[in-house]
Computed example of a mutant assay.
Amino acid sequence: MAGDDVMFLDVGEGDKRRHIAYLHAGAAAPETPSLLWLTGLKSDMVSTKAEALAHWTAPRGLGLTRFDYSGHGRSDGVFEDATVSDWLEESVAVFREVTKGPQILVGSSTGGHLALLLLRRLVETAPDQATRVRGLVLVAPAWDLTEELMWNRYTDDARREIIEQGRWVQPSAYDPAGYVITRQFIEDGRRHLIKNAAFDPGRPVLVLQGVQDKDVPVEHARALADVLGGDWVRITEVPDGEHRLSRPEDLAKLYGLIETLL
């Protein structure tokens, strides 16, 4: 999509007020479902999978909303100043103020964690809004990201640096500069863990997971079925799939999962 299509939503108050960039295409009819895309860490709303979804949904009359978290893409903020609380607040705001009608939450990696947190927040605080969520499709869901996939996997030296210096640069295969992980980010993430405060999603949670994924191990994705209440989780594993799952054959599987919810 052209840059001129980007719109902005104000989220937060006072010094925390920030402009969140988003792209929105409405569904062809009010009763037709739309997708809300929640992107991965350090990704943005015009990533490969997000653009592919835009091209897939448009001719089918399906709506699509996608946005950049603070510290990402076109939105305000610096990555190392942001927290899961910020991104959840932004996700709730976009859902409530931008999307209309029935929605399918589609989250990739960190976006999978936020999709689950968004549904849980809506169920707890706005059940009328939660009824609009028909189901979730999660790609390599990094649930409990800050604890299970970061803190628990870090070396003692990395943990010590985070505690004593307040920050540590996590090496990344996707960015030569690495990702700055702060003590604030880790500590805030503990407010949003799913493992120790599981909930029943009450609707299907369909997972697409690469068996060769080194960032979100397949065992972590499988464990989600035991963490969530009810019998809602179904996992489609891609034997030769890695983390991004953006090859044509991976995208075809993603579209297939979305179609099952349509």
Rank of each mutant, 00 (worst) to 15 (best):
W143S: 12
A140C: 12
W151T: 01
W151P: 04
A142D: 03
G135Y: 02
R132T: 07
D144F: 04
M150W: 08
A140M: 05
R160W: 03
R153Y: 12
Q129I: 13
W143C: 02
D156M: 09
L149K: 03
M150L: 04
L138G: 09
V137N: 12
T131N: 13
D156H: 02
A130F: 11
V133R: 02
L136D: 09
R159I: 01
P141V: 00
N152S: 14
A158P: 08
L149W: 03
T146E: 09
R153M: 13
T155F: 00
E148V: 01
T146D: 01
L138H: 10
V139T: 04
V137P: 11
A158T: 00
V137G: 14
W143V: 07
V139G: 10
T155H: 00
R160L: 06
E147Q: 14
E147R: 07
Y154T: 10
W151R: 01
M150A: 14
A130T: 13
W151L: 02
A158C: 07
A142G: 02
T131W: 05
D128W: 02
V137E: 15
A142H: 10
T131F: 07
W143I: 02
L136V: 04
L136R: 02
D128C: 09
L149N: 11
W151Y: 10
V139K: 13
V133S: 10
L149E: 08
R160P: 13
Y154K: 04
R153W: 03
D157S: 15
W143F: 10
L149M: 04
D144G: 03
D156S: 06
P141N: 00
D156C: 06
D128M: 10
D157Y: 15
A142W: 05
D157E: 12
